[in-house]
Design a protein around this nucleic acid. Sequence first.
RNA 1: GCUGACAUAGCUCAGUUGGCUAGAGCAGUUGAUUUGUAAUCAACAGGCCCGGGGUUCAAAUCCUCGUGUCAGCACCA
Length: 602
Amino acid sequence: MNAIAIKHNDQIIDLQTAEQLGFEGEQIHLDNSEDSLEVLRHSTAHLMAQAIKSLYPDAKFYVGPTVKEGFYYDFKTQTEIGEGDLKKIEKQMLSFAKKKYPIEKYEISMDEAKVKFADDHLKLAVMERIPDETVSIYKQGEFEDLCRGPHLPSIGLIRYFKLTKVSGAYLGGDSKNEMLTRIYGIAFADKESLKAHMEMLAEAAKRDHRKLGNEMKLFTFREEVGAGFPIWLPAGGRLRARLESLLFKAHRKRGYEPVRGPEMLKSDLWKTSGHYQNYGENMYFTSIDDVEFGVKPMNCVGHIKVYEDELHSYRDLPIKYFEYGVVHRHEFTGALHGLFRVREFTQDDAHIFCTVDQIEEQIIEVVDFVDKIMSTFEFDYKMMVSTRPEKAVGDDKVWELSTQALKNAMDKNSLPYEIDEGGGAFYGPKIDIKITDAIGREWQCGTIQLDFNLPERFELEYNGDDNEKIQPVMIHRAILGSFERFIGILTEHYAGEFPMFIAPTQVAIVPVADVHKDYAKQLSDKLIDINTDSEIYARNDSLNKRIRVAEKTRVPMIVVIGDEEIKNKTVAIRDRRTREQYNLSEEEFLTLIQTKVNEVNF
RNA sequence: GCUGACAUAGCUCAGUUGGCUAGAGCAGUUGAUUUGUAAUCAACAGGCCCGGGGUUCAAAUCCUCGUGUCAGCACCA
């Protein structure tokens, strides 16, 4: 196989450039390696631009880089381009590719380039950002584009690609600028990989929690209710209740006290906390008897009021309050996305009030809590430690201490973490927990934040051992993040096949005929006694039909009972995944269920 | 919020260049059938075609303003 580029000093260089400069290096062949795909996809972006230019001659192009999920090109045309046009563009791309135009590179001075692209304000905008004296132009057939490269030697090498999305994107990623059209695409070296990629996308679509949530009757949204306000249906309610009760127990074990703050508080309080000034745009306000109130977007102020309810001694610390806090945030309509991004949601929120000396051990405890939960759900996760940002409040020494405390906590647990330099909150550094789901996508859920700002603003204090007044530190933490987002992620992670301990329904009972209904009911009652939800499928349908319906609900276990079972006091179990059947005595069955339902403790 | 697309029965979707009483499958109801591991048969019922305004002899279909949804951007927990 011929090389498509070479790697010289860790830089990918196209063949033409390498020859001109006499560079040598490791050959890159057309395969699905990272380097090869980089070149291939970049050239595919150019091929797409060539096709667009031929179909829409007035098209002007901005930039067309490769990204994690393929490539895109931003451009502008007079005609509007929609999803339906992608096929047409793909077809044109293929017909160009068949002509096997070589990709030729030449260089011109910046001044010449500015003349050459004088009537193209987008290219001029690109050149604004290039400090060099000369720029390179790549030419394939009639089409020329300003580009740094590297590119394939010929567009004939491009065969297996797909245009996936069309949308808008701001010029330079700045919402103040004009909006361009962006088309995303993907390319691979061989047909199989493209096919596998498209199948992976289809798999992701199948797992989409919005689709599954609808099918499984977990939750819904309604136009007349309002955007971003989820409605929890019975099945979703059961799932959520199981999660809540498991987590409640886990909090109590770790010394957290349940508390609850009001849904809205006077605006003056939000001014004290700084939310009014810094977060007001995302808040909902109302007026009661001429006094302005703000609906809470976070729970911290409520918990501070709990703390203030009595005087505290250093002997009391740490104090941990937790609440399944319902919060409202005004998100942009365009940001809303199923349960992942909503306007009303419930956080598994807690605030730990402690001394500066206790920060580290408290962080360790929370990190351990996070690990317990994430590993139970078989999530891979990573943590990011975010350090002091440019704009920050508080003493340098405290920042250093607290940042080090976060890092120590991670090191002591031998947990790997990445540093996000300057990514902390203005009041303190934080650890963000990013989980990776079953098909490799990352989601930010939990967060652990050190806060020196709110204790200061609310003048919180405790009595030290010399009876002096000392300001406590607040640790703000959420583990799931929110029940909404976490359940959305869980749904996609398990593709709706929830494990027994959180499944909306644990067991489906299918009596063979009407005469077996009583036994089914007895069994169902016994299951309730061991904290297990079951559903009896006794409708006037064929046995096959009822088993099919039960299967489709993704219930973890189906038991069929008929004459045989009643006579022998057994149940016939049908496994969700393998569809295999086996028999257990009723006693064994109940023990098995009890074990499975209660096997998880966070 | 921005760009583009979309909105028809509980759900998934048909509905031709504006033209008769807006259709189908599933789900639902009612019968018949009483079933041994993925769809028994039949009948019935279901709609302000997202909501206001407009154009037209005539609007699910065209225009317009909202609302909601989708893709991405931007924002962000």
